[in-house]
């Protein structure tokens, strides 16, 4: 093996050395363990990525139709497509509903559960409440969506409408999901917040356990109030977790599909489209799979760029700390 003959001259850095002493086969032997993973990831992930990236430069009706080279046609068309632009605009609202609101609310709830409920009212109560907040996270999103669409039914037999009729004394019959863009997108955002809230709560509570209680006690002796303590001690200590939550939920927000599919189907009149849903619709019902592939590829690229930016930023923050 050529790689073995070269090794004596090159000093192997201890950090790069395999953790089991080598006998025969050398490090090449470890590559054998990649065979199943490499084949599967190649077929299930990279084959579709390459195929769609390629297809985004073609017009194709699907099935047995001929592919027709289109150059950058599909990509240029994206930026003149009002539905596509609308779907990306909605992504900002989705990020508000899946990243910003849950992270902020999660910080408040986790701090209150840990600081006040956990310390003053007992750990049992605080873990019970934590579990309650986490519950929507484990429900299938589709099932949660069906539940919300039942509550938000139009006409007077919807749960929310009946409740509002009862409160106001008048017959309320708002078509929450199918009537107007504003109510449809707000309802979808409420569902997303409801689903997401438990995730930051659990992560932040676990992070708070790392903070040494002595720090709090010292600051309490110095007369710091709760908010000052939160800003000066808690927040800097759990910053890594805030990063992780922001990264994972932002990626989830960019890929969001099921809430829109179940609640609004993109309506009323395509106003609540999100990119994933748009790509799905175009693949299933559109006349040009090349265009659908361009939509899907553009989302993939955005997700990739966002992840790289986040990870770089995290690395820089870590280096600054060190």
């Amino acid at each position: 093996m050529p790689s073995l003959t070269r090794t004596p001259r090159k000093q192997v850095h201890p950090h790069d050395a395999p953790r089991i002493p080598q006998r025969g086969g050398g490090r090449l032997g470890y590559w054998l363990y990649f065979i199943p993973g490499a084949i599967l990831v190649g077929v299930v992930i990279f084959y579709p990525i390459i195929r769609n990236l390629r297809l985004s430069f073609f017009h194709w009706r699907g099935g047995r139709a001929e592919e027709e080279f289109a150059g950058f046609d599909n990509w240029v068309a994206l930026f003149q497509d009002s539905e596509y632009l609308q779907s990306f605009q909605n992504i900002f609202l989705v990020i508000v509903a899946m990243v910003i609101v849950p992270t902020l609310l999660g910080l408040v709830v986790a701090a209150a559960l840990f600081d006040v409920v956990g310390r003053r009212f007992g750990g049992k109560l605080s873990s019970f409440l934590r579990a309650t907040y986490y519950l929507p996270q484990i429900l299938p999103i589709a099932v949660a969506g069906v539940m919300f669409s039942w509550i938000l039914k139009p006409n007077s037999d919807g749960v929310l409408n009946q409740f509002l009729s009862f409160l106001t004394g008048n017959e309320v019959a708002v078509n929450w999901l199918g009537g107007q863009y504003s109510t449809a997108i707000t309802s979808t955002m409420v569902l997303m917040i409801w689903i997401q809230i438990g995730y930051p709560v659990v992560i932040f509570m676990a992070a708070l356990q790392r903070v040494e209680p002595e720090l709090y006690e010292a600051s309490e002796l110095d007369g710091a109030n709760w908010f000052q303590r939160f800003r000066a001690i808690t927040l800097p200590m759990i910053r890594p977790e805030v990063f992780v939550v922001a990264l994972t939920t932002t990626i989830a927000a960019l890929k969001v599909f099921a809430p829109v599919f179940i609640l609004t189907m993109g309506g009323p009149s395509k106003s609540t489209y999100v990119p994933s849903f748009y790509a799905y619709q175009e693949f299933i019902r559109g006349t040009d799979k090349g265009y659908a592939a361009a939509i899907a590829s553009s989302i993939t690229i955005v997700v990739f760029i966002v992840s790289v930016i986040f990870i770089k930023a995290q690395h820089r923050a870590e280096r600054k700390d060190a």
Binding site: I20, Y30, A279
Partner: peptide, 27 residues
Amino acid sequence: IGRVKGRTWLILVFLMANLVPQEMLFD
């Protein structure tokens, strides 16, 4: 354990499975 060459990249390759939106895969 094996610390194969380019392992950071390999992790990234596998993580792609988690990053890629499902609508990119399904057709």
